[in-house]
Design a protein around this nucleic acid. Structure first.
Lengths: 114, 114
DNA sequence: AGTAAATTACGGACATTTTTGTAACCAGGA
DNA sequence: TCCTGGTTACAAAAATGTCCGTAATTTACT
């Protein structure tokens, strides 16, 4: 997913949102500021290395802001940027569509055919 | 991206939309009925094997309908299902958000910092 | 006082799994 | 023979994970 094959902006969007974690992380962050370890505890199946990589990706995309505090045990906080906050309702929309269209999808799904 | 780690429907949504092709294919299909070979020509960098797999994924998810006609040179048509058609505007929303938030994202992006 | 251990947020090397792609093959007509 | 819409076997690449190390400081123990 590195080369661009169309000029649609949707391709850039999916480059950032693709994968299991980005949308989920945005969901956790929409609740407010979270520390690295909070996010780690929130989803135990996500290794800290991947968490780190995903956060960096979201940061570079400008959706998440990282704030590091100097001090004893390190402390780093993550928040949504304004752009990230704007995105959240759109993702909510997708989730709502998924639930609302469940019967519609089931009717047309391959596996549902008799 | 096969195991479920949360109970959020967004995870199911991303399982279907993740990757470079799903959103793009929906975009082509929103213009109307497309044949396999049409979609192949529309994006030349997509191998016909992957096209086949992606279409099958979208079909199983109930977003795309496949219609095979009997006959000489095979003919198979793909269309959006009602659920798929409902999804398109949401994807458009993401694309719009991406363009509208460009400056906002740039301001917060890691690489933009001085 | 000295030493060991814990905490937090990573980074690097490496292994494994998943995804994506390539090449070749099939059917059944025109 | 070519066309269409696939499939299968195999190869490459990308995503994801495990394990270990590091920094600086507090706490725990003796």
């Amino acid at each position: 997913m590195q080369t661009v094959v169309s000029d649609c902006p949707i391709e850039d969007v999916m480059r950032v949102l693709s994968g299991r974690w980005p949308a989920l992380l945005l969901y956790y962050l929409k609740e407010g500021t979270r520390r690295f370890s909070d996010l780690q505890r929130d989803n135990p199946t996500l290794s800290h290395r991947i968490l780190s990589l995903e956060l960096r990706k979201l940061e570079q995309a400008g959706l998440v802001a990282r704030t590091a505090f100097p001090g004893y045990p390190l402390r780093v906080e993550y928040d949504l940027t304004p752009a990230g906050a704007q995105l959240v309702p759109l993702i909510d929309g997708l989730a709502d569509w998924w639930e609302a269209s469940a019967s519609l999808r089931a009717r047309h799904a391959t596996t549902a055919e008799v």
